[in-house]
Simulated assay, not measured.
Amino acid sequence: MSTTQLHWFKSSYSDDNEPGDCVEVAVAPTTIHIRDSKSPRSAHVTVTPTTWTDFLERL
């Protein structure tokens, strides 16, 4: 799946007054993609669903 086909979304906690200051996430069947919302065409990080869940649990 190419990154242009992914459905990117921001957290519901993102501040509407600072729309560029957050990360965006896209969920695919076997990977989670994470990118900087200010630079959507730049490189992004890809992790497994298990790694993403572990990260969120530790926040």
Results as ranks from 00 to 15, higher is better:
Met1Asn: 12
Thr4Ala: 15
Gln5Met: 09
Gln5Lys: 11
Leu6Glu: 03
Leu6Pro: 00
His7Val: 08
His7Thr: 12
Trp8Leu: 01
Trp8Ser: 00
Trp8Lys: 02
Phe9Arg: 12
Lys10Cys: 10
Ser11Thr: 09
Ser12Leu: 14
Ser12Trp: 10
Tyr13Ala: 07
Tyr13Leu: 11
Asp16Phe: 06
Asn17Leu: 15
Asn17Ala: 15
Asn17His: 11
Asn17Phe: 10
Glu18Trp: 07
Glu18Tyr: 14
Asp21Ile: 03
Cys22Val: 02
Val23Met: 13
Glu24Pro: 04
Val25Ser: 09
Val25Asn: 08
Val25Cys: 09
Ala26Thr: 07
Val27Ile: 10
Ala28Thr: 12
Ala28His: 13
Pro29Phe: 07
Thr30Ser: 13
Thr30Glu: 15
Thr30Val: 07
Thr31Cys: 08
Ile32Tyr: 08
Ile32Gln: 06
His33Pro: 00
Ile34Val: 15
Ile34Phe: 04
Ile34Tyr: 03
Arg35Trp: 06
Asp36Val: 01
Asp36Pro: 00
Asp36Met: 03
Lys38Gly: 00
Ser39Ile: 07
Ser39Arg: 09
Pro40Tyr: 09
Pro40Gln: 09
Arg41Gln: 13
Arg41Ile: 04
Arg41Leu: 15
Ser42Phe: 02
Ser42Asp: 13
Ser42Met: 03
Ala43Gln: 07
Val45Pro: 02
Thr46Asn: 04
Thr46Trp: 00
Val47Lys: 02
Val47Glu: 04
Val47Phe: 04
Pro49Lys: 05
Thr50Gln: 11
Thr50Asp: 13
Thr50Arg: 13
Thr51Phe: 01
Thr51Cys: 12
Thr51His: 07
Thr53Phe: 00
Phe55Gly: 04
Leu56Asp: 04
Leu56Val: 14
Glu57Cys: 08
Glu57Gln: 12
Glu57Ile: 01
Arg58Asp: 06
Arg58Asn: 09
Arg58Met: 06
Leu59Gly: 06
